[in-house]
Every structure is written in structure tokens, then in C-alpha cells.
Write a protein that binds this DNA or RNA. Sequence first.
DNA 1: CTGAAAGCGCTTACAG
DNA 2: CTGAAAGCGCTTACAG
Lengths: 358, 358
Amino acid sequence: MLSAQSCQWSRRREFPLVRVTLRDIANEAGVSMMTVSNVVNGNRARVSPETIERVQRIVAERGYVPSASARSLAARSSRLIGLLVPAADEDSLTLSPHTGAILGQIERALRKRGYHLLLRGIAHPDEVGEALQSWSLDGAVLLGFLDEEIDALDAGAAGKVAMLAVDSYSANRLATGVRSDDFLGGRLAAEHLLDLGHRHVVFAGPSFSDVGVVHQRFAGFRQAFADRGLPWDDRLIATVNTTHAGGAGLGARLRRDFPTATAVFATADILAIGVAAGLAASGAAVPGDVSVVGFDDLDLSAIVTPKLTTIAQDIPGKAAIAIDLLLTAIEKRERPAEPVTLAVHLVERDSTAPPRRS
Amino acid sequence: MLSAQSCQWSRRREFPLVRVTLRDIANEAGVSMMTVSNVVNGNRARVSPETIERVQRIVAERGYVPSASARSLAARSSRLIGLLVPAADEDSLTLSPHTGAILGQIERALRKRGYHLLLRGIAHPDEVGEALQSWSLDGAVLLGFLDEEIDALDAGAAGKVAMLAVDSYSANRLATGVRSDDFLGGRLAAEHLLDLGHRHVVFAGPSFSDVGVVHQRFAGFRQAFADRGLPWDDRLIATVNTTHAGGAGLGARLRRDFPTATAVFATADILAIGVAAGLAASGAAVPGDVSVVGFDDLDLSAIVTPKLTTIAQDIPGKAAIAIDLLLTAIEKRERPAEPVTLAVHLVERDSTAPPRRS
DNA sequence: CTGAAAGCGCTTACAG
DNA sequence: CTGAAAGCGCTTACAG
């Protein structure tokens, strides 16, 4: 008896098999659909307290959930944000640990503000416009695109949709951005190695043009040499894929290709870890023979042997600011504000030491 | 002149600021909306070839993109699939490397079949029903939930929506599933260690009940002992968090708490890597003093020192089969088929060796 | 092969 | 404080 009764009065909602609509609630409450709509959307100024209470009770009883597509169709806003990530046609999205961490933070920030997230791999530039229009997205976050790709975004696709690019230095005003202070990061890495006494440092990263994240890191890196009146030789630039294998290859041939080098600054942790592994495999000690500095501060970087000295980015901060910029622009219906740059800092661990006396 | 002309004839689509609708295309083509709809949706049997050609040309010229919310509202189907992931209220989704890899594969499989992906963190069970109804999802993939949580899914929420749980052994028929052969994995790990000569092996994992992934791995693990007529002592079960820190803690205290143990089987690579790190920190050699076997075969596992011996899962296969099961059920409008179990295999690397002679 | 009508479930102006 | 009307952009039966 008792259990039957508590079941009867259970607060667990019943989800009916046919959809409960605004009209159902309105009929049951004896008011118009408009009034129910106002209650559901929190326009409380327009409805009497008693009506609010009654409607809310019925909404809860019936387990009413508004239809997002109907709302999206009728209103100006879909409350849907696209997370657009590059994806080669045949390949899956490759979520780097860095991308995965940002993604998780973005989902949370959006959910807290009542938005939903559409995750979409982009294999071809045209798909950006299609993705934005198809679901009437209110905005989009571009994660992992090259600046050249951001540059190429055209006004049509982006016209009415707020866009924000993570880690971009593109001058395209259609998309604002958040990024870490990559210049400072490069400088801090170089200063750390110079302070330890290194003078021949390999700069290892993907090929870069004169804009973009890697260029900024390189510019900051060189600035540290210039600030101290130290020479820099562009032949110490090593162009490699930003993968563990790319780093391992460089590490293995480092002492042959760069015989004077006593240290490596790699533009990503995964690359730096590969370099260290390649060095170890070729019989060089890290940091005894060669010091290695990375960039990102992945969880992984505190786990590998030796633990990696690196430049730490504020990933939760990056995601929080990205969503804040984007949603503020959407809700105020204006172009997003100026790009925001987040601080970085050096994390000293076990992969750096003074150069061996020769 | 030339450049102006090539611009004129550029194949780049113009995306207009106001939405192009079915009606616009119909007017311009001099046909009804229905006909345009049939062309766009590929119901070619119903339209003459000349009309198809003309409509398609105008669609391309005007850059028409159908409104997914209008279609979703009018039709029975939204072509939207939810990817539901647990998320503590204040926390972000924590995408483990394993989860992140599956996520990327799922997005790709969905995109190839013309579906879109809504990513949603679930902080409270009620949110599952809300998520399904709000966007009229055609189906949902549950990723990372406990079997207890899957069990609790009620018919209301799931009634009309196909659901599929990854890595679940729940008996709840509302959601079918894909999973690796966890029993076999546990058995292979144990057989490998027994073959090497180990007899006292710690089973390290999160607490587990009598269903679920961890239970299966444990059951397979024990089976290997039973098959050989070897004794097993439940006191060799170590309950730890499935994190690097959890493993490191166990590794550090292993020789004190489990003085007879010469090997550890951890139910996840990240845990196994932690165990190895903890052992190293406490002065024990891996695999010299203690062997370690993991489960997952993360990218990371081939990078750490020593490289981890582990049980490899087929992650792309898991994602592909998950989506195939789910979409087949949706398109045929029937309950998903029986759960599918994927093969696993042992990957021998450097973290296992025969026990030291004592 | 083609089309006019009704309706999916909401919101946006308006009018009271 | 409350409501009737029109419409968002499609698709689903139907009828020709």
C-alpha cells in the first residue's frame, strides 16, 4: 500500500508518447497559448502571479518540453551554437587532447546559458555556410582552423551569424577570437633556455607564414635573443609535423642535422614529447645532453618521463571567454568585440637543465 | 577585364542575407513548392528530368539551403542524433582520450549519412528526456554512463527514440549497445601474465558490481586462473579511481600492501600508466620488479616509458557499428537489434616480463 | 508527372 | 494582464 501510494505521488515526470504542446497546456489551464508562452519564457511581467503558478504546475505535471525547432522557426533565435572543427573528407575529426579539453569546457559554458551545441566536422569551406544556414545557428565557434581558412570566410556565409575563432590571428573581422599570448609564450621559453646557458636552440614546429599562432611563438622566441643582443640563425628552424612521430623523427636525427644544438623549443607538447623520445632512442639524454621545452601543458606532459618543461595555456579560461564573447555579441546583436589574449606561464619540470660543458 | 569576368562567372556561391526559401525557388522555376521539395529530397521518380535539371540549377545559383528546423517540424524526422555524455553539474564534460576518439568517429559516421550531431552533457537523469524531446532527436548515443544509469532510463523518455549505449551491459531493452569483448580482454591479460610465470597478480580498477564492463573484465581475468586450475585470492583486488593519480597512488604503496604481487592488471591504460609511474617513484622497476598490463591501447600508451603492454579495443569499429545499429533502427522504425560485441587483442610492449626469480 | 490545402508548434506584432 | 490572427519554412496526404 505504502509503496503504491508513494508511487502515485512520485515526483517523477511522466513523458507521454505523443508530444504535449503549448496548446494542450493552454487548454488545460484555461488561458491562451500566448500566456503559456510568456510563462514558459519567463516574461513574468506580463502575467498575473496566480496564472503563472497554475501554468507552471500544469507544465510540470504534463512534462511539457517546448519544441526547439518550432521555436527556432518562429523566433529569430535558435539558441543553437555550432562548433565547427576541420575534418578531412575520409577522416574523422581528430580531436587533439588540447581540442578535446576546450570542447568539454565549451559545452558546459553553453549548457549553463541555455544554449545547445551542434558539433560539425568541416571537410570543405562551403560547408561552413551550409552548416550555419541549415540549422539557423545563432553563432559558431571555429576550432582548429588555419588563419588562411578564417581569412577566406566570406561575408555571405557569416553575414548574420556571430562567429568566433579560437587561436586565430586572422584579420577577418567576421570572426573575432580568443587566443593565448603566443608571443609571450615563445619569449618565455627562449628566456628560460637562455637563462640556463643555452645558445644554440632548435625551433621545431609546423611550417608557418607571417601570421598565425606558430609565427607569434617564433617572433616571441626570436625577441628574447634580440633583447639580449644574442645572434639567431634561421638554419636552426626545423619544420616537422605536429605529432609524436614528427617529433621522434627530429629527435633521432637532431645531433646529426643540428650538431651545435643543446636545446629544442617545440611548438606543441605532443611534438616535444616526441623529440624527447627520439633523442632517448638515439642515445641522447634529456635533459643531460639536450633540453626540451614544449607548449600547451597537456595532462600528458606531467606524466611522461622526463616530465616536460612547457608553456601553460589557460584552457578553461579560453573556453569561458570564447563563449562569453560570442553569446554577448549574439544577445546584443552586434559584432563581437576585439580579440582577447590570455596570459601564459612557464612550467618548469624535468626536461630542461644547463647545457653540458664542452 | 579578365579578372572581372572570371569573378562574374565564379562558381563561388552567393549566400544572401535573407534566407532563400522553397517558395523562392518554386517561383523562379515556375513550379510548385512540392516539386522543388521532391527534387531537393531526391524523390526523382516523381519529377520529369527537365524539371529536375532546372530546379537543381536554380537551387545551386541561389545557394538554397533547406531549413532543418522547418523540416523537422513538418516531417517525422529531425535527422539529429544526440550524443549524451555524463557531466557533473559544475564540471565540464571530461572527455577521456578514449571518449574523445569515439566522439570523433561518431561525428564522421553521422555526417556521412546526412545526420547532424547534438552534443549534450547530462548532469541529471531527467535531462535525458528533455534533451530527446526538445530537439525532437531521432536517436541518441549514450557514451560513458554506468549500467545503473542505463537501467534507470524510463520508457517515457525513450519511448519513441532509438537509443544506443556504448560499453553497456545493461539489460534495459530501451537501449541496445556496442561494447568490446571485455571478458576476453580480461582473460587475455591474465593469460599473458600467467604465461610469463606470474602467480600473484593485482586486479586494479574502480569498484564494480555484478554487471558492467569492469565486472566482465574481472570475470574473464578470473576465468584464466580457473582454466589452469590456479587459485585466486580476492584480496588481490585493488579498488582505485580510474585516473593517473589513482594508479600512481596504488603503484607507490603496492609493495607494502601487496608484498607477494609481481604484476598488476589495470582496467584502463591511464590507470596502468599511473601504476607504472608510482612504482618507478617508489624505486620499483617496471617490468623488472613488477609487470603492468593495461586496457584500451591509447595513443599515449605507445609513448610512455616503458611502453605499455595492453588490451587493444577497436575504437573506429565501435563507433561505426554504433551508428550503423542506431541509424538502421531509426530508418526501419524498429527497435535496435541485439547488442554487438567487438573483438579485442593483446598488444605486447615493454611493461611486462617474467617475474624476478626469488 | 504536378499542385493546392492543411498543418507541424511555436512567436511576433497588434489589439483590447 | 490577456488573447485572436498571421506566419516562420517545410512536408504529408490527397486530388488531379
